[in-house]
Amino acid sequence: MYDGGKVVFGLALFVALCTSPLWLSVARGGGGAEAPPLQMPAPAAGKCVRDGEWMRNSHMELLNSWRDEVVREGKRSEQLADGRVIEKSLTKTCLGCHTDKTQFCDRCHDYVGVKPFCFDCHVETAGG
């Protein structure tokens, strides 16, 4: 091999970069293989405004449409399929049951590296 030093250095850099998540994980003592548990609201709080499975993947779509409907069209309430009438409000309705943002919202968002801009404006405590 010619210019062995440079080639080996380059290859070592390449292999180190490709496998860096492995070394980083070892250096941090493993962990992270399981999503952090979510603090679910007490059963007394009742059912969620949508199906739980759907909410897990698509809650941002609901919140986004709520924002548009409330802010731009002034439609503040919604009747659910089961007859309940709820207020379209992140702070009042969502955080009313999921009282601790750090134990619920942040858990998944931090885990998958998502930074929603909801709380740029909204306060984090329920009923605000």
Binding site: P21, G30, G31, G32, A33, E34, S58, Y111
Partner: peptide, 21 residues
């Protein structure tokens, strides 16, 4: 489609930590 990202990360982290999920 909007898949469950936590489940996706569990698969990826399973590969990284050699504890496949």
């Amino acid at each position: 489609v909007r898949t469950d990202l936590s489940a996706v990360k569990e698969v990826a982290m399973g590969l990284v930590t050699f504890a496949p999920s």
